[in-house]
Design a protein around this nucleic acid. Structure first.
Lengths: 339, 339
DNA sequence: GCATCATATGACTACGTAATCATCTGGGCA
DNA sequence: TGCCCAGATGATTACGTAGTCATATGATGC
């Protein structure tokens, strides 16, 4: 049943006995066509196997109905968000052109592709995208939203979770549940997320008289967390020296820290409480059951897409509040009488 | 620095003092242009901020350089594959138009979009895509590859891991390491993957005199696995009644089974060995350290893209061997003298 | 019955590029 | 010097659609 010749709106028009314009209108603006004509057109289209050509439409209408997303290839967090982005775009009838990069050096070629395809808007996982690349993207007039990168104030819109407040909330929760010493395990220190999450935690803890040291794992991935576990034990002089809690800068990183510590005989949460940040689906998996700050992915992306669609302010810099999810990776408050 | 007027190859030609055709050639086929002309063109393009329009190119050349992928929205396995697909396409200079669906009912509208955008090829996560949808996709003459769905013999090409052989290998490994009773925990029983994996396991085990019952979790996701744990214990009459090993039809499902059993006080692997299937990155996470059959994702996708690119046979039905990864979720062979 | 007007329709064109074809240029060789 | 050919270039056209404008159709009011 493969079409031998390309079926265009012209062929359909011929068969239906109307003009090409009427065929086009029957698909793009059905209300502008009489019921009778539309009926004839749809029948002809059906019998010929006609499918409107979105490429030609895009060229003529100067709008592709495609949103681009530029994200790191290997990241549980971004995979999570991409799933949400894709679903919301489908609801809006838009398409998703997905660009991934394994190394920052790949970003420039990716950006070039984004520009060539004339997408209607771009979502940028910008913690890893440098200033120059963002300027390049926006220079063609493409609306762009920097995701979790509020520093991009002068370049494009941005949508972020409130990293600092969220981290402070987590810290407050730890204090409330009886933790008196806390250390922060950072991810990639060059990202704003990392800095803000540490700052939020440190400020809140200081207000309770707790000094919170920063220990860097270098990146946000599982292996970095797993690898830092031994260094943590050394740094604190063994299990007994560990603080009451470790606040980890991201969930995936936290999974690694949890597993790394457990592999070294440390119990989580009995020897040390662990918190994460992101609210990944895996955080609810019983093996981790991570106390974490849940980013409201659905809301974040709705706002981001709103900016791209022009329904929100194009220069807005939005911050969305997350909420604390309490799991068993952090201790419950000690009950009076227990030790 | 936003362009007020759209810059086209015509403007560049004017500034460079050449024809539009030469500008087009300078980008699409540089070797067909003299160094001098190309130089002038590139300078002019640079100064004007010209970016070739891929939409117009696609319309004229009847090839979009875009590959579509239709996958379920929430699946660790597919997220894993999408990352790989995206990376390989980037290497080939192609783009990825990603379509996800949460429910099978969404597939038809997704397929319509695939057809409209005239993608050069489609990858289908076909275990969840019905026959009609696949016919629709291919009816426009778009090359399609069904992924892990060898039943689609008469419709399109397919690329699959050897489910049956892989499952048999896992079973053989269990027998070798001293397991004498094994049950199979299935996912979605309507998928070929599920059936073939059970068949491979059952056959191999039978050849060793072991009868392998099938217990269905209903789907391949974590929650299904977590939920089936209690039913498993009931079915076998408690921890003591459990078989030596549970072969689980997919990794994500296996994570759930592991966590569910552990939550009920069952030790993995001391009380029961668990194996998975897929070889997800999380299978190597120390919390699970799953014995599983690793699908060679890189190879699978290279083959699939090869079919789409026409470098492989378009009607080929390829099967790729996986390999067993041994983790601590299954017991090591009992040493002589130990119990 | 005629004028008026809203709606439906058709002819035409442009979106920006790449392929085709014809023309031109310059170097090699007799 | 003159001829020939390969490579470079330009003019032209088509890809399939949607918007613009003008015309046709039918319903309404007097």
């Amino acid at each position: 049943m493969v079409q031998s010749t390309r079926i265009t709106s012209v062929e359909v028009a011929k068969v239906a006995g109307v003009s090409q314009a009427t065929v086009a209108r029957s698909f793009a603006a059905p209300h502008k066509v009489s019921d009778k004509s539309r009926q004839k057109v749809l029948e002809a289209a059906q019998s010929l196997g006609y499918v409107p050509n979105a490429i030609a439409r895009s060229l003529k209408s100067q709008t592709t109905n495609i949103i681009g997303a530029v994200v790191p290839a290997r990241s549980e967090y971004w995979q999570h968000l991409v799933a949400e982005i894709s679903q919301q775009l489908a609801e809006r009838g838009s398409q998703l052109l997905l660009f991934t990069f394994a190394k920052p050096s790949e970003v420039s070629s990716v950006v070039e592709a984004v520009r060539q395809y004339r997408v209607d808007g771009v979502l940028l996982a910008s913690a890893f995208i440098d200033h120059e690349a963002m300027v390049d993207v926006t220079s063609l007039g493409v609306p762009a939203v920097a995701f979790n990168h509020p520093e991009a104030v002068d370049i494009s819109a941005s949508v972020s979770v409130d990293n600092e407040a969220g981290s402070a909330e987590l810290a407050a929760h730890l204090v409330e549940t009886g933790h008196r010493s806390v250390a922060f395990v950072g991810g990639n220190p060059e990202t704003g997320s990392d800095r803000l999450r540490y700052r939020g935690a440190a400020k809140e803890l200081r207000s309770h008289g707790i000094v919170c040291p920063y220990i860097g794992a270098g990146s946000f991935d599982y292996d970095a967390g797993y690898g830092i576990a031994e260094a943590l034990l050394q740094h604190f002089g063994g299990v007994e020296g560990l603080p009451d809690a470790l606040m980890v800068a991201g969930d995936e990183l936290a999974f690694g820290v949890v597993d790394g510590l457990r592999a070294l005989g440390t119990s989580v949460p009995d020897d040390v409480s662990i918190t994460g940040f992101d609210g990944l689906p895996q955080a609810t998996w019983a093996g981790y059951d991570l106390t974490t700050l849940v980013q409201p992915a659905e809301e974040l992306i709705r706002e981001a897409l709103g900016v791209l669609a022009g329904t929100s302010d194009e220069r807005s810099h939005l911050t969305v509040k997350g909420f604390v999810r309490v799991g068993r990776s952090s201790r419950r408050p000690a009950v009076q009488g227990e030790s």
